[in-house]
Amino acid sequence: MLRKVALATLCVAAFLAGCAAPPDKPEREGFEPDGGEATGKESIRPGTDTGPAVLALLDEARGAAKAGNLNTAQLQLERALRIEPDNPVLWHYMAKLRLHESRWKEARSLAAKSNTLAGADKRLQADNWRIIAHARQGMGDERGARDAQATARALQPQ
Protein backbone atom coordinates (compact mmCIF):
# COMPACT_ATOMS: atom_id res chain seq x y z
CA MET A 1 0.00 0.00 0.00
CA LEU A 2 2.80 2.34 1.00
CA ARG A 3 4.66 1.50 -2.19
CA LYS A 4 1.57 2.20 -4.20
CA VAL A 5 1.12 5.60 -2.62
CA ALA A 6 4.79 6.44 -3.04
CA LEU A 7 4.71 5.41 -6.69
CA ALA A 8 1.53 7.38 -7.33
CA THR A 9 2.99 10.46 -5.65
CA LEU A 10 6.15 10.20 -7.69
CA CYS A 11 4.21 9.90 -10.90
CA VAL A 12 2.00 12.87 -10.14
CA ALA A 13 5.03 14.92 -9.24
CA ALA A 14 6.52 13.97 -12.56
CA PHE A 15 3.35 14.91 -14.46
CA LEU A 16 3.03 18.23 -12.83
CA ALA A 17 6.70 18.96 -13.15
CA GLY A 18 6.17 18.90 -16.86
CA CYS A 19 9.43 17.07 -17.19
CA ALA A 20 10.05 13.94 -19.16
CA ALA A 21 7.85 11.20 -17.84
CA PRO A 22 9.41 8.02 -16.54
CA PRO A 23 10.46 5.81 -19.46
CA ASP A 24 7.41 4.35 -21.08
CA LYS A 25 7.30 1.06 -22.89
CA PRO A 26 6.56 1.82 -26.51
CA GLU A 27 3.36 0.43 -27.91
CA ARG A 28 1.91 -0.80 -24.67
CA GLU A 29 -0.84 -3.30 -25.08
CA GLY A 30 -2.10 -3.68 -21.55
CA PHE A 31 -2.56 -1.30 -18.64
CA GLU A 32 -1.17 -1.03 -15.21
CA PRO A 33 -4.18 -0.57 -13.02
CA ASP A 34 -2.50 1.44 -10.31
CA GLY A 35 -1.59 4.19 -12.67
CA GLY A 36 2.05 3.73 -13.41
CA GLU A 37 2.69 5.77 -16.48
CA ALA A 38 -0.35 5.82 -18.67
CA THR A 39 0.54 8.38 -21.16
CA GLY A 40 2.78 8.99 -24.09
CA LYS A 41 6.45 9.56 -23.95
CA GLU A 42 6.40 13.07 -22.61
CA SER A 43 4.11 14.74 -20.15
CA ILE A 44 1.78 17.40 -21.37
CA ARG A 45 3.07 20.88 -20.70
CA PRO A 46 0.91 23.95 -20.23
CA GLY A 47 0.21 25.78 -23.49
CA THR A 48 2.17 28.85 -24.49
CA ASP A 49 -0.86 31.05 -23.85
CA THR A 50 -0.96 30.03 -20.17
CA GLY A 51 -0.73 33.12 -17.98
CA PRO A 52 1.98 33.74 -15.37
CA ALA A 53 -0.53 33.44 -12.50
CA VAL A 54 -1.46 29.92 -13.56
CA LEU A 55 2.17 28.98 -14.18
CA ALA A 56 3.01 30.15 -10.65
CA LEU A 57 0.21 28.02 -9.24
CA LEU A 58 1.38 25.03 -11.26
CA ASP A 59 4.79 25.53 -9.69
CA GLU A 60 3.20 25.38 -6.27
CA ALA A 61 1.18 22.33 -7.28
CA ARG A 62 4.36 20.66 -8.44
CA GLY A 63 6.08 21.41 -5.14
CA ALA A 64 3.14 20.01 -3.18
CA ALA A 65 2.93 16.88 -5.32
CA LYS A 66 6.66 16.27 -4.94
CA ALA A 67 6.26 16.53 -1.19
CA GLY A 68 3.50 13.94 -1.43
CA ASN A 69 0.77 16.40 -0.58
CA LEU A 70 -1.75 15.63 -3.31
CA ASN A 71 -4.51 17.48 -1.52
CA THR A 72 -2.60 20.74 -1.70
CA ALA A 73 -1.59 20.04 -5.30
CA GLN A 74 -5.28 19.65 -6.08
CA LEU A 75 -6.05 22.93 -4.30
CA GLN A 76 -3.49 24.81 -6.39
CA LEU A 77 -4.96 23.30 -9.56
CA GLU A 78 -8.40 24.47 -8.52
CA ARG A 79 -7.06 27.98 -7.92
CA ALA A 80 -5.55 27.86 -11.39
CA LEU A 81 -8.86 26.67 -12.88
CA ARG A 82 -10.69 29.63 -11.42
CA ILE A 83 -8.32 31.85 -13.33
CA GLU A 84 -8.25 29.90 -16.59
CA PRO A 85 -11.35 27.70 -16.66
CA ASP A 86 -10.87 26.96 -20.35
CA ASN A 87 -7.30 25.75 -20.05
CA PRO A 88 -7.52 22.08 -21.10
CA VAL A 89 -4.16 21.21 -19.58
CA LEU A 90 -5.40 22.08 -16.09
CA TRP A 91 -8.35 19.73 -16.48
CA HIS A 92 -5.93 17.12 -17.77
CA TYR A 93 -3.76 17.43 -14.65
CA MET A 94 -6.84 17.19 -12.48
CA ALA A 95 -7.80 14.01 -14.29
CA LYS A 96 -4.35 12.57 -13.64
CA LEU A 97 -4.56 13.36 -9.96
CA ARG A 98 -7.87 11.57 -9.75
CA LEU A 99 -6.52 8.63 -11.72
CA HIS A 100 -3.75 8.24 -9.19
CA GLU A 101 -6.27 8.33 -6.41
CA SER A 102 -8.17 5.56 -8.22
CA ARG A 103 -11.22 7.80 -8.45
CA TRP A 104 -12.02 6.35 -11.83
CA LYS A 105 -15.32 8.03 -12.63
CA GLU A 106 -13.99 11.46 -11.84
CA ALA A 107 -10.75 10.83 -13.75
CA ARG A 108 -12.75 9.79 -16.79
CA SER A 109 -15.05 12.82 -16.60
CA LEU A 110 -12.20 15.25 -16.09
CA ALA A 111 -10.30 13.83 -19.06
CA ALA A 112 -13.47 14.15 -21.15
CA LYS A 113 -13.83 17.74 -19.96
CA SER A 114 -10.26 18.44 -20.99
CA ASN A 115 -11.03 17.02 -24.42
CA THR A 116 -13.97 19.40 -24.91
CA LEU A 117 -11.49 22.26 -24.56
CA ALA A 118 -8.51 20.69 -26.31
CA GLY A 119 -9.36 22.09 -29.74
CA ALA A 120 -6.93 20.73 -32.30
CA ASP A 121 -4.34 19.53 -29.78
CA LYS A 122 -4.23 15.88 -30.76
CA ARG A 123 -1.49 15.00 -28.32
CA LEU A 124 -3.48 16.25 -25.39
CA GLN A 125 -6.60 14.51 -26.68
CA ALA A 126 -4.67 11.27 -27.03
CA ASP A 127 -3.37 11.55 -23.48
CA ASN A 128 -6.87 12.22 -22.22
CA TRP A 129 -8.11 9.12 -24.01
CA ARG A 130 -5.35 7.13 -22.33
CA ILE A 131 -6.60 8.37 -18.98
CA ILE A 132 -10.13 7.38 -19.99
CA ALA A 133 -8.80 3.95 -20.97
CA HIS A 134 -7.20 3.51 -17.56
CA ALA A 135 -10.26 4.74 -15.76
CA ARG A 136 -12.52 2.40 -17.68
CA GLN A 137 -10.24 -0.48 -16.93
CA GLY A 138 -10.27 0.51 -13.29
CA MET A 139 -14.05 0.29 -13.38
CA GLY A 140 -13.90 -3.15 -14.96
CA ASP A 141 -14.87 -2.06 -18.46
CA GLU A 142 -12.15 -3.90 -20.43
CA ARG A 143 -13.80 -3.41 -23.78
CA GLY A 144 -14.36 0.29 -23.22
CA ALA A 145 -10.74 0.56 -22.14
CA ARG A 146 -9.54 -1.06 -25.38
CA ASP A 147 -11.75 1.28 -27.42
CA ALA A 148 -10.39 4.32 -25.61
CA GLN A 149 -6.83 3.12 -26.11
CA ALA A 150 -7.54 2.64 -29.82
CA THR A 151 -8.89 6.19 -30.03
CA ALA A 152 -5.74 7.43 -28.35
CA ARG A 153 -3.57 5.60 -30.85
CA ALA A 154 -5.57 6.89 -33.77
CA LEU A 155 -5.07 10.42 -32.53
CA GLN A 156 -1.40 10.01 -31.83
CA PRO A 157 0.24 6.97 -33.35
CA GLN A 158 3.27 6.06 -31.24
Binding site: Q74, E78, M94, E106, S109, A112, N115, T116
Partner: peptide, 16 residues
Amino acid sequence: EPLQRYTIRVEQVVEP
Protein backbone atom coordinates in the same frame (compact mmCIF):
# COMPACT_ATOMS: atom_id res chain seq x y z
CA GLU B 1 -4.75 22.90 11.10
CA PRO B 2 -6.51 21.77 7.90
CA LEU B 3 -9.58 19.67 8.66
CA GLN B 4 -11.56 19.22 5.51
CA ARG B 5 -11.61 20.24 1.91
CA TYR B 6 -14.56 20.18 -0.44
CA THR B 7 -13.02 19.66 -3.86
CA ILE B 8 -14.37 20.31 -7.33
CA ARG B 9 -16.21 17.20 -8.47
CA VAL B 10 -17.09 16.70 -12.08
CA GLU B 11 -19.17 13.97 -13.66
CA GLN B 12 -20.03 13.76 -17.30
CA VAL B 13 -23.77 13.12 -17.55
CA VAL B 14 -24.53 14.27 -21.10
CA GLU B 15 -22.44 13.85 -24.26
CA PRO B 16 -20.59 17.17 -24.53
